[in-house]
Design a protein around this nucleic acid. Structure first.
Lengths: 144, 144
DNA sequence: ATGCAAATGCGAATGAGTTGCAACTGTCAA
DNA sequence: TTGACAGTTGCAACTCATTCGCATTTGCAT
């Protein structure tokens, strides 16, 4: 628990220093985001934040998410055919695997793939600004 | 030219057999799509189709694109922060590299990456239904 | 404590895409 | 060739996710 709180303390401090006011609404969202291990979308975050800040509006949630994203605190993911989903930024980039049956998101990372990507881009005279890789997957059933 | 026409002939035939009427609007869109080597979005396809079928409506374009997509004739790509873009399906899957400065789309393919993706999914007990990989890139400048 | 720019809540607006519906038109059978 | 009729079209109205305008409120530096 102290870990999470410490993380949020640091964050609020950092935000304040970036000239961004830490309002009740924002604190609540930071808390909700830090506690989330799924990748919630805006309405879901709104729902969760409402228990801490009852009247919080959805626009505020959207605005805060944009702010936090541009501060590099969270990441926005636009998976196929679904509203944007968010996750706190942790050290170390990763990609996503979406279970097409449940909507669950797993994270993974492959240095080897990243390296190949960079090679391919370089061959064509480009450098990678960023990339997006999503595997839409289905659980392998024992029998079938 | 005969190549393109032959391709379209085959397609219209295939559509007819799938119980899908080949209307003027659809023929026009098939032609526009076959002729496109960029990855146009719906309004752009609408613009191009209008020269052949003057009154064609945007809804028809959207409807036709959905139809053609579900027939496996074209593919829809949802790149970051942009409306969907379309391309005819050609044999051989490929991924995309988007020049963030110009919006140009290059295609590429890497068996090695695909293999790694499958391995990663398999390790976690999943099989890949499909994937999406997009490299957002910038041209490497000689000096700078 | 106080001022004020920044942030909020509300509702209205946006943009991409979809849909209901009456009028139209490919297509297949005769 | 001609019907007939289900599939299509154009239009306008709608949805859904997200953004914006604006009057009111509120962090927070002083």
């Amino acid at each position: 628990m102290s870990e999470t709180n410490a993380g949020i303390e640091n964050l609020t401090e950092a935000l304040r220093e970036a000239g961004i006011r830490v309002t009740r609404q924002r604190a609540a969202l930071l808390g909700v985001l830090a506690a989330a291990d799924d990748h919630p979308d805006a309405p879901e975050l709104h729902r969760r934040a409402e228990s801490e800040v009852p009247g919080i509006s959805l626009s505020t949630v959207y605005r805060t998410l944009s702010t936090l994203e541009s501060q590099g605190v969270i990441q926005r993911h636009q998976f196929e055919g679904a509203p944007a989903r968010f996750e706190p930024v942790e050290p170390g980039h990763h990609d996503h695997m979406i279970d097409v049956e449940t909507g669950n998101v797993l994270e993974f990372c492959s240095d080897r793939i990243e390296k190949l990507q960079a090679e391919i881009a370089a061959e064509l005279g480009y450098e990678i600004v960023h990339h997006r890789m999503e595997l839409y997957v289905r659980k392998i059933t024992g029998s079938a």
